[in-house]
Amino acid sequence: MANRRDLIGGLAAIAIGAGYLSMALEIRHSALDDAVGPAGLPKVLAFLMIGLGAILCVKAALAGGPARPAGPVSDEAATAEATGIRFSGIARAGGLLAIAAAYLLVVHPLGYLPSIFMLLVAASLYGGAALTWRVFAIGAGGAVFYWLLFVQLLGIPLPPGILG
């Protein structure tokens, strides 16, 4: 359903363009401004985005059937074409996003080592690894490995948390 996909894409572009435009109009003028001004390019970009979005919508509405890509097919197109991810897939991806977001919440209070261990275990299980001792062993090994690599070898001050 290439045309519906393009319609959504076009509408999204229009929405992004409009939102960006409303912010661009808020940019302050100042006496240090040049002829173009800080809002000059943003306004052009906003109208371009809206215009391009509209073209995409019109094309999608006119096309009707699945559009055939002309010219060389990029790998992005190929992936999406081959998979045809459905709504349940999007929900599954959302789960991974939730795991990632949870890491952001716990990394400061708990510290890097325990948080990265939990991230590894949760993401592995979510990705389909069987729930056995192996998951935890690999998670612990990985967490220690990353900790050695980033904190000890590279000297990056990742949050120490409860262990620090």
Binding site: G9, I16, Y20, S30, L32, L45, A67, G71, S74, A77
Partner: peptide
């Protein structure tokens, strides 16, 4: 890839992200 219009939309999106931050001439925020 397939659609030039989509390529351009994607490029404009990148240009938009590039405008975030300090203005190159006035030093104001955008």
């Amino acid at each position: 890839g397939g659609s030039l219009v989509k390529g351009l939309i994607a490029a404009v999106l990148g240009l938009m992200v590039a405008t975030i931050g300090t203005d190159p001439v006035t030093g104001g925020n955008r």
